[in-house]
């Protein structure tokens, strides 16, 4: 199985498409950092006008921690697409190339194949999040320096001291890995139904977009289903930047995401086991 995993990883990282994701992460973070370097002050002043009316804040507001947070905020909407690019291709891509049948002639079970596909997608997701951490946080710290971080919520202004930030980022990135793993498992699940990678990739994004809209719409009709949508819990990483940190809510979100991941994986195995593979 380890050998199979190596083959999977080799296939993933041999494809130029894989590196497009890393390139996109680099490009987006660079663009945001450049924009913040040139006109960050007016962006911050706009966001803080309610606070600035009453308080005078001195010091380096535009520091690497704040920029990292802004980038994370915007990128965790786009990262699912990059994860789906690889995970959605895992089974459907093989079916499209006609290699799925060939693989299954080897002495491995279908369960093992799904598991290997999932682990390889998880490794890819982890590397993507690590690269995101390097670009969004460490490059921003290098460009903008350190300092206390301001977190603006809809009803709260939170100040986090700089010595109290690194562990929060570590925890947030770990949480992001879990959230993106759920997306990867969804993409693998949808990939099992298709013979072409485009379908699962677009379907994954479609599901994420629709559910994200449902999660963020403030309508009583959707409030009943919101706690059960994985998109509601995907932004749980933000909880680490709250004060006090809502550990119970984060634990609940982790549980929901793990349950979805296992659920998608289980359904993939269930379906794939019975699938008539013709290519």
């Amino acid at each position: 199985m380890i050998k199979l995993l190596w083959f999977e990883l080799y296939k993933i990282f041999r494809r130029p498409r894989t590196y497009i994701s890393f390139g996109i992460v680099t490009a987006i973070t660079s663009v945001i950092q450049l924009a913040m370097l040139s006109d960050g002050e007016s962006f911050v002043n706009f966001a803080m006008q309610g606070i600035n009316e009453q308080f005078e804040i001195q010091g380096r507001i535009m520091n690497g921690y704040l920029i990292g947070y802004i980038i994370l905020q915007s990128l965790l909407i786009h990262i699912p697409l990059l994860v789906a690019l690889v995970a959605g291709d895992s089974l459907a891509g093989e079916a499209n190339l006609g290699t799925l049948r060939l693989i299954l002639t080897r002495p491995i079970s279908r369960h093992q194949l799904i598991l290997v596909k999932f682990i390889s997608s998880f490794i890819y997701t982890t590397l993507l999040i690590i690269w995101l951490a390097v670009c969004a946080l460490f490059f921003s710290l290098w460009l903008f320096g350190t300092g206390d971080m301001i977190n603006l919520k809809s009803d709260a202004f939170i100040l986090i001291l700089k010595d109290d930030l690194m562990w929060r980022y570590g925890a947030a990135f770990l949480f992001a890995m879990l959230a993106m793993t759920t997306i990867a498992s969804l993409a693998i699940f949808l990939s099992a139904f298709a013979d072409n990678a485009i379908g699962p990739i677009i379907s994954t994004m479609g599901v994420v977009v629709v559910l994200t809209i449902l999660s963020n719409l403030e309508l009583p009709l959707f409030n009943l289903v919101k706690p059960y949508l994985f998109t509601t819990h995907m932004i749980g990483w933000k909880g680490f930047f709250d004060d006090p940190v809502p550990y119970e809510a984060i634990r609940r979100s982790c549980f929901v995401l793990v349950a979805y991941t296992i659920g998608f994986l289980g359904m993939t195995m269930l379906y794939f086991n019975k699938k008539d593979i013709r290519s």
């Binding site: 009453q54 308080f55 005078e56 010091g59 380096r60």
Partner: peptide, 9 residues
């Protein structure tokens, strides 16, 4: 290295 917050002037 940190932020300071004071009420308006």
């Amino acid at each position: 290295g940190g932020l300071s917050i004071l009420p308006k002037k």
